[in-house]
């Protein structure tokens, strides 16, 4: 008896060893490309900006303090909140709507799908250039259309009132088609029987959508939502083409500002401090999404 239990112990110890060996490569890669840069950034954010006369020195949390005291910081944060608050729900809702439409029995279904997906295939810079033409005052497509109903030329990207909204529209246009593909794939895994059963049980389209379809699409929605959220921080390519964050910071997003700090103002420690703040916020949001939402989602 003791022999077998001892054997078991050796066996389980060996399994544990195998386990550690198996995760080792991942641990190594993650350390190299995620943990180490994070720590380095955190460390860098605790120093002052070095100049030729005054070298960089340890200043603790001073960078964070001056950030919080800077009205530009609060404007950029506000911009990004609006940007995320609009692009995430609107592009998800549009994606779902388009997917339902493109999944229905409609003529030229393949064409519709391709048309919806085209924006997703364009590089963001190309998409932004396209929209630059749309937005051109007076001669752009948008102003031509508005001209038809008697509304004069608008400098969509050049005035603070419309700059952020214009950037948001481009992002939604770009993202919705991409997210639609995920919804389309998810819709195709839902057996048509379920709809028929619901119909026979007396459910209308809306009830079927709300009580059956939407819950079954929740895993996709979570996935898309996480992606949309990441994009709302990460996707700033179009700012370089469209507004450069202007006018007067009206369309500036956090990552763009980080880039400016690091490479235009050469204030690396400030950029590092901003990056740390973004990491903290994203980490918290991801935790909430996975811990809270996950529990309510039905996975098949």
């Amino acid at each position: 008896m003791t022999d077998t239990s001892q054997l078991h112990r050796i066996e389980s110890r060996r399994l544990a060893l195998y386990g550690s060996l198996l995760v080792l490569p991942s641990v190594f890669m993650l350390s190299l490309f995620a943990f180490w840069p994070t720590l380095a950034t955190l460390w860098a954010s605790l120093f002052s900006k070095g100049t030729s006369r005054r070298p960089s020195s340890f200043i603790g949390l001073d960078n964070y303090e001056s950030l919080f005291a800077n009205p530009d910081f609060w404007q950029v944060v506000g911009n990004n909140l609006i940007y995320a608050g609009v692009t995430i729900p609107v592009s998800i809702a549009l994606a779902l709507g388009m997917a339902l439409w493109a999944n229905a029995r409609i003529p030229a279904r393949a064409m519709v799908r391709i048309a919806y997906f085209t924006p997703a295939m364009l590089p963001m810079v190309a998409a932004a250039n396209l929209w630059l033409f749309f937005y051109t005052p007076d001669i752009g497509v948008l102003d031509r259309l508005f001209g038809l109903v008697g509304i004069g030329g608008t400098n969509w990207l050049g005035q603070p009132e419309t700059a952020l909204a214009s950037v948001i529209v481009v992002t939604i246009w770009k993202e919705a088609g991409f997210f639609m593909i995920f919804y389309l794939a998810a819709l195709q895994t839902i057996p048509p029987d379920l709809k028929e059963a619901a119909l026979i049980e007396g459910a209308g389209r809306w009830t079927y959508f709300r009580r059956i379809l939407l819950p079954l699409l929740m895993p996709t929605t979570l996935f898309v939502m996480v992606n949309a959220m990441i994009n709302s921080v990460k996707l700033i390519d179009h700012l370089f083409i469209l507004t450069k964050g202007g006018p007067n910071n009206a369309s500036k997003l956090i990552l763009y500002w980080i880039w400016e700090n690091a490479f235009s103002y050469f204030d690396r420690p400030m950029a590092a401090a901003l990056t740390v703040l973004v990491l903290i916020v994203l980490g918290i949001v991801a935790l909430i999404q996975f811990a809270v939402l996950e529990r309510r989602i039905h996975y098949r």
Binding site: L194, E196, A197, E201, G202, I212, L216, H298, R300
Partner: peptide, 17 residues
């Protein structure tokens, strides 16, 4: 829904969630 009948499907068509 207005025919006053019910149906059992080959796949059962149960709502998985």
């Amino acid at each position: 829904a207005h025919r006053g009948l019910s149906m059992v499907f080959q796949s059962y068509a149960l709502f998985p969630h």
